[in-house]
Amino acid sequence: MQGDAALPFILEGLLAFWDMIWPGLGKGILTTLQVSAVGLVLGLLAGLPAAVARVYGPRWLRRLATAYIEMFRGTPLLVQLFVIYYGLPDVAFWLEGLGLPGKWLILDNTVAAYIALGLNSGAYQAEYFRGAIQAIGAGQIMAARAIGMSQLQAVINIVLPQALRLALPAWSNEVAYMVKYSSVVFIIAVPDLLARGQFIISKHYNPMEILLTVGAIYLAMVLIISTLMGRLEKRLRIPGLELEIERA
């Protein structure tokens, strides 16, 4: 009898809780996923060319690529975010003072987030791709050249298709990392999941419950993504082509 009486209480409590977190956290989830996705794509666009440059480029290009990679892997994401969001407007004013166009450097917080996450992720992705490319033996390119392909053709048609598959496990890791690290954009007021959570806390003063919920949601996202990426890996696997790379 007592159990039955408790049930409506529990349900009521849950409904009240749900009202509190939805749609706020829901919007936060979307923002987080959006920011992560854009960051990953930008990272790919930055990282893959950087990796190719580092392996096949002329010396000056290799140096440039290495400098980019070392800079962004050797400094915290949050600092990079601050440089881009708070520092670039500074540079903009300076440029304007010199009579040069600088306004374009003043980014709103979402765009700054995209760029910082993108450049940061790109540096790490560059290392995975570099490892994968280098693991594809030189013999592959030799064979490609032998049938008349140019260096560029050989890289694009023979090396990259294999390298991208090799890099897939490391890239799956990167997706999970991105979702987690995207939480830092809350610090520059991008309304991601964590930011929405903090907002609810500021209204209802229940930090533990909300934070645990937010944590659980992040965990769920990471687990779902890992499972999906695992399935993708299985689909694309070529027997005999495997490599172990860790996130640095």
């Binding site: 930090p207 934070l211 645990l212 992040y218």
Partner: peptide
């Protein structure tokens, strides 16, 4: 723990436990 952002863990310990 590898599925939780460090920032969230930090907030749980700092704000969450504050009561």
């Amino acid at each position: 723990l590898r599925g939780l952002p460090a920032l969230v863990v930090l907030f749980i310990l700092f704000y969450g436990l504050s009561s």
